[in-house]
Design a protein around this nucleic acid. Structure first.
Lengths: 221, 221
DNA sequence: GCAGCCCCTGAACAGTCATTCATATTGGCC
DNA sequence: GGCCAATATGAATGACTGTTCAGGGGCTGC
């Protein structure tokens, strides 16, 4: 909500990170995340970001080719780490589609609660990247969706999922999109001061996901 | 994706709406919706909007106090109409919480598919409004969420909903948020060329909503 | 103590922007 | 025909933008 218009107003929120604390490129990344999340990419100026790490405008270009490349850099790193974690969670969850789905949702929601700033920027600011740069982000998102779809396909084939049908047909892609929208946007409203902890959020969302696809109760092991 | 940066590029997408067709203020609203949805509020210039309706920059200020007020105007009108439709749908759905929930989701998803441009702008661009203007929008959103919450409360009290619990307690607010996130963001990816019609989307999402809250099968009427 | 390198500075550039205003143009009404 | 209010024009204003670059520190290894 402080994502404000032309009206300058002494940006300093992040109260100037120590210049010595870490490599300047890391300080820039952190400041950029904070400012983009707070006020949105197009209204955050290069001067704002650099002031927040105690440098001046020009210094940005010793570390990044452009403001665009900075955005692309922080988004891709976040996105590829997300994809990696999702794959890892699913791979480590055994063979049961129910366990795979639950593991996926747990890690996905947990991450979007904990790293809500990064998630928010990665999800809200892609549109400002140019066509080429936006392509691999979208590819990664589709890949994540397809992980879900293939868990669904497997579950349906084995009879452990009974997802809602439209006119007698399954549309597992739409269900995956719905589930991802739900899980992604916790980063827009979850705050650590709320009623639920990250773990509780993860559990709640995993339960809802299993219900959405009509997961059948496990046979007693 | 054409939400582009400084690079000018002869905006004309909406191929200049006829000047006579409707009151200029309506033409401006329509052009603003289209442009904001396509490229995002901060990078759409007053010149862009006015050119798209065959006028010049200055003319905007005969109809709106500022670019900000224009955004606020189109968002509030969309938002209050959404709230009205939701209340109406719930009120007309009879007494059963399951029917109320289904009616709510149906109308909400249908609207977000059909008026996806307006929904997209209303949901993505609020952040650019100043504090006062953003307040009543957020109030309306909370009101919509509370409609859902009270349906849930009623359903639980009557034993027709058995929502997932965390540590033995219900958090119906979180479930409502999850459901709204899911339904709202169809406007980000649904296209009329896809696999499902608006009606099919509405039905699918209503089914998922009922499953999420553990709706018990209706007794045969 | 001196290269050589990495990094930073801050002015300058060439653009962009929302908004204002004096000056037209319009269309309805007497 | 003449008048008035509503509306459109487009140049001008003052401010802000991302990016470049000449000039300068302050390290390193010798």
């Amino acid at each position: 909500m402080t994502r404000r218009k032309p009206a300058r107003e002494e940006v300093e929120e992040t109260p100037v990170v120590e210049r010595e604390s870490r490599a300047p490129v890391e300080a820039i990344r952190a400041a950029a995340f904070a400012q983009f999340a707070e006020r949105g990419y197009p209204v955050v100026t290069v001067r704002d970001i650099m002031k927040a790490c105690g440098l001046t405008q020009g210094a940005l270009y010793n570390h990044f080719k452009s403001k665009d490349e900075l955005l692309h850099d922080i988004i891709t790193s976040t996105q590829s780490e997300l994809e990696r974690q999702c794959r890892q969670a699913v791979a480590g969850a055994g063979d049961d589609p129910r366990a795979k789905l639950a593991a996926f949702v747990r890690i996905y929601v947990m991450r979007h609660c904990r790293l809500r700033i990064e998630a928010l920027v990665a999800n809200r600011e892609i549109g400002w990247l140019d066509g080429e740069r936006v392509a691999d982000i979208r590819r990664s998102r589709r890949a994540i969706r397809d992980i879900l779809v293939s868990i669904f396909v497997d579950g349906v084939k084995r009879g452990v999922f009974e997802p809602p049908q439209v006119d007698g047909r399954n549309d597992l892609k739409a269900i995956a999109m719905a589930l991802l929208d739900q899980c992604t946007h916790v980063s827009m409203w979850y705050g650590p001061g709320g009623d639920l902890t990250e773990e509780q959020m993860a559990k709640l969302y995993a339960d809802m996901a299993l219900r959405m696809v009509g997961a059948q109760p496990s046979r007693p092991a």
